[in-house]
């Protein structure tokens, strides 16, 4: 496993991929703006609507508003969606449609630089969006404590882990039709990962199954941090996300090399 990961490291030249993507996105500013507004829409709609309907609930012996309960789940979801769109859709576009990588590989950059650059870009994006999400949480009063600031590194981890898996999935996409498959996986993960209701509502066997979902692990981790309710399980949750991301990255690195430099 470790020997497979070493080539992922890449070189300093990887920063040019980040630079490239930044410049491309600068020309698509609408997309950037939407990234900022997405969390605000999530939080506002929940705060205005569902929060009034559901009222308060008790989590770990503490009474919190529904909005405070659900916000970390939405943050986790937003990290997943952002990473999936950015890696799967956009990388697929560069890989198979515009063949941008083919021309990039004719320069001193190599496949590992490209992979590292894309991961770096995904990380940067996740950093900005999660920060703006957390700021919104604080401003809207959905953060019960200042521990919410610890959600930032945890959200980043979520973003990078899903980016790694997204990058790996992207190499299996053959045409636009295959994106339906990705939605088919992504949607149930979102709906069943206990992001907007407590996992304790599930029957025991289903709850055990949901534990396997990386989105659930991320949401539970973020919720614990946001509410300031710490436990040893959180280390396991973070570890699960690390492994999830690393497996994705090592698959991605090998498949990238096979596709781009046959």
């Amino acid at each position: 496993m470790l020997t497979r990961l070493v080539p992922v490291i890449g070189s300093r030249r990887a920063r040019h991929i980040v630079e490239r993507n930044f410049e491309v996105y600068r020309s698509q500013w609408l997309m950037l703006i939407s990234g900022f507004f997405e969390p605000l829409f999530y939080l506002l709609s929940i705060g205005i609507g569902l929060n009034k309907l559901v009222g308060n609930l008790t989590v770990g012996g503490r009474v919190v508003s529904y909005a405070a309960f659900v916000a970390p789940g939405m943050l986790a979801t937003s990290m997943m969606n952002g990473a999936v769109i950015d890696t799967i859709m956009n990388v697929f576009f560069r890989l198979k449609i515009t063949h941008s990588y083919d021309s990039i590989l004719a320069t001193p950059l190599d496949v590992n630089d490209v992979a590292l650059g894309e991961i770096g870009w995904a990380t940067g994006r996740a950093a900005i969006y999660s920060a703006s999400f957390i700021v919104c949480m604080i401003l809207l009063g959905d953060a019960p404590s200042w521990w919410v600031l610890l959600c930032w590194p945890a959200a980043l981890l979520t973003g990078v882990a899903f980016a790694g898996v997204g990058l790996a999935s992207c190499t299996f996409v053959r045409s636009w039709q295959d994106f339906d498959m990705i939605t088919l996986v992504q949607l149930p993960i979102f709906l069943f990962s206990a992001t907007f209701f407590p996992i304790t509502l599930y029957p025991r066997w289903l709850g055990a199954l949901v534990q396997l979902s990386p989105l659930y692990q991320s949401a539970a981790l973020l919720r614990g941090l946001s509410l300031g309710q710490f436990s040893g399980v959180m280390v396991l949750r973070a570890g699960y996300l690390v492994v999830f991301g690393l497996v994705g990255l090592s698959v991605a690195a090998r498949r990238f090399a096979r596709i781009l430099t046959p």
Binding site: V24, S27, H99, S100, D102, A106
Partner: peptide, 13 residues
């Protein structure tokens, strides 16, 4: 310098 068979330019830019 490499000029590939197909122009791999960034079309929207």
């Amino acid at each position: 310098g490499v000029v590939p068979q197909e122009d791999t330019l960034e079309l929207e830019l």
